[in-house]
Design a protein around this nucleic acid. Sequence first.
DNA 1: TTATAACCTATTATAACAGTATGTTTATCT
DNA 2: AGATAAACATACTGTTATAATAGGTTATAA
Lengths: 143, 143
Amino acid sequence: MLISTRGRYALRILIDMAEHHGSGYIKLKDIAERQEISEKYLESIVKELVKRHIVYGVRGKGGGYRLSVEPDQINVGEVLRFMEGGLAPVACLEEGSAPCPKAPYCRTLEFWRGLDEVIPRYTDSFTVADLMATPNAGNDYII
Amino acid sequence: MLISTRGRYALRILIDMAEHHGSGYIKLKDIAERQEISEKYLESIVKELVKRHIVYGVRGKGGGYRLSVEPDQINVGEVLRFMEGGLAPVACLEEGSAPCPKAPYCRTLEFWRGLDEVIPRYTDSFTVADLMATPNAGNDYII
DNA sequence: TTATAACCTATTATAACAGTATGTTTATCT
DNA sequence: AGATAAACATACTGTTATAATAGGTTATAA
């Protein structure tokens, strides 16, 4: 599995925040209820989004989270990459991994490199705003 | 990680077999030595290739394995898919998984579907013969 | 000063991955 | 016929990542 729940949930959190902006700060508890994800688990995901300055949080009563960037400025590929710690399809292309000694004569390396280009080319062509506008079969979601 | 060692090694085995065809049957022991992969682990991978009729094996002394199909007829995407049990980038698109109840109003589903198309479009455009012909930086591999 | 909500640290259950270990069957060679 | 060599089969195991939980601390508003 290329993308785990961390990447998937991060996108859902960002879309949820974008859809509920304007009315002050958004509580994790509310996101958790709407998205049917454990609040505690969301915390660990939002923590990363805060660290990356995509979201900012205010403590205490009346506090919560807000996007610190417009949805059309949040790149989906970038979010997935830092949530997942990279999107390399194979271990030998993970950044920080030791260079493979077989690389000079490897018959598969170029194939993997190509796949490793194709994925970000796709993911990076989306912003959170694009996801919000995604057409759905039965778009009857009550906001 | 989208692709585990099983998929990676399977391709290396197939390329190795293609490069050493003609001289009778190829012993797993030899492949294991050339590829520096444990023979026992290779067994479990080749087993799948035999099951899929891409490779066939002959027991006993002088036995070994051979490709049962020409390298240009072996699709890389297909090999990866059955070795990995699918290449879906997210759990909700795995075949055999329960349909997601959120699908009708999911803002990310179409995005994932798109990624799930992009990956096979790339992988399926390669055959084992293509991999063999892949240009390398320092192609000094001794066959 | 109490309620609330973000923030922080540690722990845990499960499953997949990557590989081992041991043995059985089938074929060839002497 | 017997030794050897290879595929084939089944079961087990250590390690790691995932997907959370649990329990607490700090900051803010009413």
